[in-house]
């Protein structure tokens, strides 16, 4: 059963001077018990889509249903069955304990205090912060605050939970705990876990399916494995001296579909990662680099990642895209 249905959803932001197309005829479905990842660089439209699905924003056109309810016409019903968490929002009230904060949020959903208390204990146990429950919020470390934030999103036992960059800035241990919880909540409690992320590792590790989004358009939707295997082109990584940085745009190189360049100033090296139309272009690129007096220390053909899938579609990586996108 599809808990999230999006059909031709479009959102245009209008200011006095310009119009920004944030979502362009987006369509997708997410099933019950599925961990779904919306993967794209900042400014791709992930947050806009989540804001529409959580009833905070109206679409310009198209339709979206959450748990079978229309997000425009039945917003109140949608709000009762969803949870939401973003790494950027504040968790609660600083001078109030974690337990009391969670209780407060449970009241926004009309839970009885006994059910709320039981739920608080359960979630604290799942996210391993029981010993922090009676501490005031401002005394908690960032990692515990973020775990509390995830617990808050689940306090009302929601059918669909939306997470916007859930593990952004989280310590490795907390992020691992949270990812495990996402999978558990989807598989055991049949929740739909809808994640907007630009964390490739996260998307590959826990998502059943991933939608790659750029400039408001969905470029591809499939399992991470299928998306990667659909990329039949070779991915090559060249490790060069810092002169490699002079290649501003890898697509200018013959036979390159797209790529990224990362410069390591400290070690005076550069990593040029490219997707080639065909393996025959490898020799040609080595020749070009030599002519440009770029010293190649090493090169290797790699297994594609989800970012490579993105690069193959738009020609640039997340970081390059973020620099070029106006929000």
């Amino acid at each position: 059963m599809a808990n999230v249905v999006v059909e031709n959803l479009t959102r245009v932001f209008e200011t006095k001077s310009r119009k920004v197309l944030a979502l362009d005829k987006v369509s997708l479905e997410v099933r019950s018990g599925e961990v779904f990842g919306l993967l794209g660089p900042n400014g791709a439209g992930k947050t806009t889509l989540i804001r529409i699905l959580t009833t905070l924003l109206l679409p310009t056109s198209g339709r979206a249903l959450v748990g079978g309810y229309d997000v425009v016409k039945e917003a109140k019903k949608v709000r009762g069955i969803i949870g939401f968490s973003s790494s950027s929002e504040r968790v609660g009230f600083d001078f109030v304990t974690a337990r009391r904060n969670l209780w407060f949020f449970s009241q926004l959903y009309g839970l009885s205090t006994s059910i709320a208390n039981r739920r608080i204990e359960e979630l604290a146990a799942l996210l391993e912060f029981q010993d922090q429950l009676d501490r005031k919020l401002y005394t908690l470390t960032t990692g515990y605050r973020q775990r509390l934030n995830i617990a808050r999103a689940l306090i009302n036992d929601p059918l669909v939970v939306f997470f916007d960059e859930p593990t952004n800035g989280m310590d490795v241990f907390s992020a691992k705990k949270v990812r495990e919880l996402f999978v558990k909540e989807a598989k055991i409690n049949s929740r739909t876990m809808f994640l907007a992320t630009h964390n490739m590792f996260e998307a590959e590790e826990i998502c059943d399916r991933v939608a790659i989004i750029d400039k408001g358009r969905i470029l591809a939707i499939d399992t991470p494995e299928n998306l990667k295997s659909s990329l039949s082109k070779p991915v090559v990584l060249f490790e060069t001296d810092v002169a490699g940085a002079q290649i501003d745009d890898p697509t200018q190189l013959e036979g390159v579909v797209g790529g990224t360049i990362r410069v390591d100033d400290e070690n005076e090296t550069a990593k040029i990662r490219v997707i080639l139309r065909d393996e025959i272009f490898l020799e040609k690129i080595l020749d070009i680099l030599e002519k440009r007096r770029v010293r190649v220390y090493n090169y290797q053909i790699l297994e594609p990642t989800l970012e490579d899938v993105f690069i193959s579609q738009v020609g640039a990586g997340f970081a390059e895209r973020e620099r070029s996108v106006e929000v």
Binding site: G80, F84, E89, Y109, N156
Partner: peptide, 11 residues
């Protein structure tokens, strides 16, 4: 960001 949480709840 708290207002977001209020609006997206049924409260």
């Amino acid at each position: 960001g708290m207002l977001y949480l209020y609006i997206t709840s049924p409260a």
